[in-house]
Amino acid sequence: MNALAARRPRPATTVLLLILALVLGAAALVTFATRPASASSAASGDQIAQGKALFQASCASCHGINAQGTMTGSGTNVAGPALAGVGAAAVDFQVGTGRMPMAAPSIQAPRSKVQFSQEQIYAMAAYIASLAPGPAIPTAAQVDFAKGNAAVGGEIFRVNCAMCHNFAGSGGALTRGKYAPSLAGSTPTHIYEAMLTGPQSMPIFSDSDISVVGKRDVIAYLKAISKEPTQGGSRLGSLGPVSEGLFAWVFGLGLMVAAAVWLGKKAA
């Protein structure tokens, strides 16, 4: 059975791979086109100055005029943490996913509309990176998930990520209203940066924890499962048995009862 199945041509797989390759190509193009030549190592003085100006206009109210961090009025809580050493990757992730600047103080910065152009984000990233060394924005090769091994990435994902983000990356609850967000729609670069910098409650997965290759594999796995067609129909949010049970009670029983009512009703 299996041997036969393995020899049979699989047009769908081919199509899938083709689509994947196309998407990859497009993504790579976009990344290359907008990436500054030297985001991490040798940012130009102009870029840093532009970034500093942007920072002071939009971020300094919480993070301090020199990114040294500030406390709230009562001095008991951190309004914005010090940013020296968080690295360009943290800036690109936080600002590039719209989490920063935060609209209002809350328990967790939600993903929202991006406020800056990618150029501006790179400038701010360069400024923060100039304060102290920190994780750099990953290179195109590091997030080139076409080279990754999705199966290995899946194993790493299940051990390190699934307990918070759920098996399908749909997200999950943390303590006291915090949550691990859904990973749907996250770009490879942002996924990489999140692992590298550990935003908010998320722990840091440095390159010595999950290797550069391992991170690429994780991205490859996430992209593979988000691109694959659903096998058995609507995923019901990939939330597991809770949504399945709800569906059985509401739609399953609903349809059965509707049929039973029709069956018991006298014909016209």
Binding site: P11, P229, T230, Q231, G233, S234
Partner: peptide
């Protein structure tokens, strides 16, 4: 229906044609 072919279904998205 091809073994692993898929089809777009409104409200579900791309799904395996065989099962549908």
């Amino acid at each position: 229906v091809t073994e692993h072919g898929s089809v777009f279904v409104p409200g579900i998205g791309l799904m395996r044609a065989e099962n549908l």
